[in-house]
Amino acid sequence: MTERKFVKPLKPKVDVNRVNTRILPVEFEYFEPRTVKEVVELLSKYGSEARILAGGTDLIVRMKQRFIEPKYIVNIKKVKELNFIEDRGDHLAIGAATKLREIEKSGIVRKRFVALYEAVRSMAGVQIRNMATIGGNLCNASPAADTAPPLLVFEAKLKIVGPDGEKLVPISEFFLGPGKTVLKHDEVLAEIWIPYQPEGTGSAFIKIARVAMDLAKVNVAVALRTEEGVVKSVKIALGAVAPTPIRAYKTEEFLTGKELSEATLEKAAEIVKTEVKPITDIRSTAEYRREVSGVIVKDALLKAYERISGR
């Protein structure tokens, strides 16, 4: 049996009742660049004292709470080259400043990347989705970021632009820890490239949260391809169960080449529980997160399996 420890009640770092979120008590210089080049120039000039404003649904809140007090705000909402959804043959490219609502409305995302569609649909309310961007969700590097698991299972690549040019980073190498990514102060996430999946791939996203508006206690995405009931390829990613969103490589390895029987799914759920490293926080306990990880991975596998066309 798993050992049970007494869970200490958590104290917030700031007394939330004494934070005045009515105003924005931070003074800053404000820029509205129109090109990525201008964004990089501003970031290079002001370094760590500058912050990118995309949707603002995290940044403005954290500035109100005075967790961060940037001296320069670089608003990228008006940079056209960061705001698009484009079919590029072998992959779908999404500009980092594209709003979640635009992604949700995209027919290609809905048809070809069901797990991403479900993840975006599950996020907050319509007002937030009209503001928040996919790049913001990734760059905040919350372990619970809902767009991360789907992008991990689709093996998306991230185009990052800096003063020395651009580079492509696999999303599995992007997150370093809570709030930490490989992005340097003078770099900006520009595009998300999502490769089209082979014919016969089914995907699904499931999230457990306290209420609809809240962040995930646990979230999971699965991309699955089978041939005559045998797993040809499977990718599983989970969020809010480790310092970063993670892939469940051992579970994937176990499932590959097996028939999707009840017993196999049960075993897979057990392996998942050994791969996650959850913590206890205000949203959930480590024990619950571990237990439920197994359950929703199983559910997501079944959901993805049902979606495989021509099965």
């Binding site: 005045n20 979120t21 009515r22 649904t57 109100k64 709470q65 319509v126 007002q127």
Partner: peptide, 26 residues
Amino acid sequence: GIGECGACTVLLDGEPVLSCLTLAVE
């Protein structure tokens, strides 16, 4: 004041957004 309640909703270019998280300069 933190984007949970929707009481500050306005339509910005026709889309509902939260005015308590929107800079006026924008």
